[in-house]
Design a binder for these strands. Structure first.
Length: 492
RNA sequence: GGGUCGUUAACUCAGUCGGUAGAGUAUCUGCCUUUUAAGCAGAGAGUCGUUGGUUCGAAUCCAACACGACCCA
C-alpha cells in the first residue's frame, strides 16, 4: 500500500539518483567527533558564553529543513539533543550542495564545521562539509502537531521516540528509576538474582498463566506469574537478602493498568518483618522520586501527591471505617457485611468468609480514594495464603499493601515459614479454585520441601515497576511506560 | 466479555440536510545566502477501516466485522 504512495515514490527516486551518482546511501565510515548536547550552552538563554572554537563534527537525523535556494537551515537531532546547522553553497561547494539538495527530513547525515550564533542568538554549525549516512524512505509526521495518533505511536514506537521528546524522557526516566532501585537495594546488601521465567508450576500468586511447551522434554511449562516461590528457596539456601527485577506474565485482560507482561521487583530480607519493609519502602520510593523528579511533592494527572515520609498507615478495618465510611459495629457483623457487598454487586463464592468480604469492600469503597501514599495493614489471612499470621490474631496476617493515587503499588508481608501451615493454606486455596480454572492449580511440593529444611524468618515485598514509573512520569496508561505494549496484530 | 466513542491524503484535522473530497503541514516545480510553524507563486497527492444493505445516488443512513481509546466486569 505504501509503495504506491507518491511521497515514497519520490523519495525512492531521489535515493536512486544519488546512488547513480555514486553516493553511498547507507555509509558507515563516519565517526562523529561531538555529541550535540556538548556544543550547546547549558542555558538556552545565555547568549554570552563563548562558543568552542574549531571544527565540530556531528551526526544525526534531519528533523526540520528550511531551504533558501543557495543556502538552508536544518535541525539535526542525535541521541543527546538538537542543533541548528547552516548549509551554504559557498561554504560546502557546488558538488556537496547538489547532494544536499537531494536530502530530506528524516535522513541521517553528518556535518562538520565551526559554531556561530545567528542574529537571533541560536548556536548553529556552519557546515563546511556534509555526508549522507542513511537515506530515509518514509516521511516523518508533520512538524507542528507531530505524531499523536495513539495506535500509531504504539505500533511505530520508533517514530514516536524520534519526534516526541517527552516520550524519550519517559523511557529515560524508566531506566533511571530501575537503576536507582537496583542501587538502593544493592547498597543495602541485597543480591540481585535471576530465577526461572518458565516454571513447571505457576505459583506465587493468583493469576492465569501463559502455557508453553518444551519439545525435547515433552513437558508443558508456564510463563511465571511471580518469582516468589523461587526467591524464598534462595532464603532457604542461605542468601539472606535477595531481589529480582524481571518480567511476570499474566494471561488476563488488558487495561490502562495491565499489560500481559509487566516488570516486577521482588525482594526478600531474612530476619525482617513487614514493619521493616514499610520503612524500607518509604525510604526507597521517596528517594527515587527525589532523584528522578527533584522533589517528593509530585503531580499525577492533575492531582498533588506528597511522597515525603512518613506515610499514613491504616489497618484494613481502619481504612474501611475512616475512608470507606463503614461503622465499627458493621465491621464485626459478617452477615451485614455480606449483604452490603452483594448489594454493591460484588460476586461472592459460597465459601467466602468475612476476610474475603472485607477485602472486596475495601477494593470497592477505599482503594481509589487513597491518593497520598498509604499502607494498608492487617490483611485477612483468608486472602493472604503466603503471609505469616499475626501473633495475636491468627485471622489476620502481618501484611501490607501500599496504595498511591488509588492504585496498588506494593504488596509485602512477613513470610510464612511454617511448612505445615503453608501446606494447609495452599491446599485450601487450591481446593477453592480449581473447577472453573483453565489451568488447574497444583501444589508446589518442592517449595514445601524447601520450607521443611527451614526458611529463616523473613519479610518480602513486590513492587510493580511499571506502576511506579507511571506515578513518577505522570503517565496515564501503562502503555506509556512500556516501549512496545501488547497490541493485536495490525491488519494488512 | 459488555457499553460508549473513534477510524477521511504521509501527518494533524474539516466535511452542513445523502448529490462522486477539503484545509494546513509534508512532497514536487520556480524564485529566494541568517531562517526557525521562513516567505511568495504554482502543481500533484485519497479503495473516506473492511464487507454487505437501504437509495436514482452513501464519507454521510443501517448491519456485521477489524483495529484502537475510555469505562465496566
Amino acid at each position: 500500500m505504501e509503495d504506491s504512495n507518491q511521497i515514497i515514490a519520490q523519495r525512492r527516486q531521489k535515493a536512486g539518483e544519488l546512488a547513480k551518482e555514486g553516493i553511498t546511501l547507507y555509509a558507515n565510515d563516519f565517526k562523529p567527533g561531538h555529541r550535540i548536547i556538548d556544543l550547546l550552552p547549558a542555558d538556552d538563554f545565555d547568549h554570552d558564553t563563548p562558543l568552542s572554537a574549531g571544527t565540530m563534527s556531528v551526526a544525526g537525523r534531519i528533523m526540520a529543513l528550511r531551504r533558501f535556494g543557495k543556502a538552508a537551515f536544518l535541525h539535526l537531532q542525535d541521541g543527546t539533543g538538537r542543533i541548528q546547522v547552516h548549509v551554504k553553497r559557498d561554504e560546502v561547494g557546488d558538488a556537496a550542495y547538489a547532494i544536499f539538495k537531494k536530502l530530506d527530513i528524516g535522513d541521517i547525515a553528518a556535518f562538520t564545521g565551526p559554531l556561530f550564533r545567528t542574529k537571533t542568538g541560536e548556536v548553529t554549525i556552519q557546515a563546511l562539509s556534509l555526508k549522507l549516512l542513511t537515506k530515509s524512505l518514509l516521511p516523518l509526521p508533520e512538524k507542528f502537531h507531530g505524531l499523536t495518533d495513539i495506535e500509531t505511536r504504539y505500533r511505530r514506537r520508533y517514530v514516536d521516540l524520534m519526534v516526541n521528546p517527552e516520550v524519550r524522557d519517559t523511557f529515560r526516566k524508566r531506566v533511571e528509576i530501575i537503576r536507582l532501585v537496583r542501587d538502593f537495594l544493592t547498597n543495602r546488601g541485597f543480591l540481585e538474582v535471576e530465577t526461572p521465567m518458565m516454571q513447571p508450576i505457576a505459583g506465587g500468586a493468583t493469576a492465569k498463566p501463559f502455557k508453553t511447551h518444551h519439545n525435547a522434554l515433552g513437558m508443558d511449562l508456564y510463563l511465571r506469574i511471580a518469582p516468589e516461590l523461587y526467591l524464598k528457596r534462595l532464603l532457604v539456601g542461605g542468601f539472606e537478602r535477595v531481589f529480582e527485577i524481571n518480567r511476570n506474565f499474566r494471561n488476563e485482560g488488558l487495561s490502562t493498568r495491565h499489560n500481559p507482561e509487566f516488570t516486577m521487583l521482588e525482594f526478600y530480607q531474612a530476619y525482617a518483618t513487614h514493619e521493616d519493609m514499610m520503612e524500607l519502602t518509604e525510604e526507597m520510593i521517596s528517594w527515587v522520586a527525589m532523584e528522578v523528579c527533584g522533589t517528593m511533592q509530585i503531580s499525577y494527572q492533575g492531582r498533588e501527591v506528597d511522597l515525603a515520609p512518613p506515610w499514613r498507615r491504616y489497618t484494613m478495618d481502619e481504612a474501611l471505617e475512616k475512608v470507606g465510611g463503614l461503622s465499627r459495629e458493621l465491621l464485626s457483623d459478617f452477615a451485614a457485611l455480606k449483604k452490603l457487598a452483594l448489594s454493591k454487586g460484588v460476586e461472592l463464592q459460597p465459601q467466602a468468609g468475612i476476610g474475603k468480604v472485607k477485602t472486596e469492600l475495601f477494593e470497592l469503597l477505599v482503594e481509589e480514594r487513597l491518593i497520598d501514599p498509604t499502607f494498608i495493614t492487617a490483611y485477612p489471612t483468608e486472602v493472604s495464603p503466603l503471609a505469616r499470621r499475626n501473633a495475636d490474631n491468627p485471622e489476620i496476617t502481618d501484611r501490607f499493601e501500599l496504595f498511591v493515587t488509588g492504585r496498588e503499588i506494593a504488596n509485602a508481608f512477613s513470610e510464612l515459614n511454617d511448612p505445615d501451615d503453608q501446606r494447609q493454606r495452599l491446599e485450601k486455596q487450591i481446593a477453592e479454585r480449581g473447577a472453573d480454572e483453565e489451568v488447574f492449580p497444583e501444589l508446589d511440593d518442592d517449595f514445601l520441601r524447601a520450607l521443611e529444611y527451614g526458611m529463616p524468618p523473613a519479610a518480602g515485598e513486590g513492587i510493580g515497576i511499571d506502576r511506579l514509573v507511571m506515578l513518577l512520569t505522570d503517565a496515564p496508561s501503562i502503555r506509556d511506560v512500556i516501549l512496545f505494549p501488547h497490541l493485536r496484530p495490525e491488519k494488512k
